Simulated scan of single mutants.
Amino acid sequence: MVISTESVWEELTDEFVQEYRDAVVYADLEQETILHEGDLRILANGWVKLPTGRLLSPDAVHHIDT
């Protein structure tokens, strides 16, 4: 029997991660407050990961223009 040392959850979450280049993250509907411009990853749990390693909460993000 072969047992994997990798988590099944990690394999499944990789399927739901979305990566974008030159995206803009807004904190409000009016698009007045920009939280980030540039590359980003949207994780399976809804958090936005920036290239610096910083994470943005789904509660802080109103929408993302890709």
Rank of each mutant, 00 (worst) to 15 (best):
M1N: 13
M1W: 13
V2S: 01
I3K: 07
I3D: 07
S4C: 03
S4P: 01
T5Y: 10
E6D: 14
E6A: 08
S7L: 10
S7C: 05
V8I: 11
V8Y: 10
W9L: 13
W9Q: 11
W9F: 12
W9G: 00
E10G: 02
E10T: 12
E11I: 08
E11D: 11
T13P: 00
T13R: 14
D14G: 06
D14H: 11
E15C: 07
E15T: 10
F16T: 05
F16H: 12
V17T: 14
V17Q: 09
Q18E: 13
E19H: 13
E19R: 15
Y20G: 02
Y20M: 08
R21G: 12
D22C: 05
A23Y: 06
A23W: 08
A23F: 07
V24M: 00
V25I: 12
V25E: 00
Y26F: 14
A27S: 13
D28E: 08
D28N: 11
D28M: 00
D28Q: 06
L29C: 03
L29F: 08
L29G: 02
Q31T: 08
Q31R: 15
Q31F: 05
E32S: 10
T33S: 10
T33K: 14
T33Y: 10
I34N: 03
L35H: 04
L35Q: 03
H36S: 03
E37M: 02
E37K: 13
E37G: 00
E37R: 15
G38D: 02
D39P: 07
D39C: 07
L40S: 04
R41F: 06
R41C: 05
R41E: 12
I42A: 02
A44W: 09
N45F: 06
W47T: 14
W47R: 14
V48M: 06
V48N: 00
K49S: 14
K49N: 13
P51S: 02
T52R: 06
T52G: 06
R54D: 13
R54L: 10
L55T: 12
L56E: 01
L56F: 00
P58Y: 02
D59F: 11
D59G: 03
A60M: 12
A60Q: 15
V61T: 06
H62Y: 15
H62Q: 14
H63C: 04
H63F: 11
H63R: 10
I64F: 02
I64P: 01
I64M: 01
D65F: 05
T66D: 09
T66L: 08
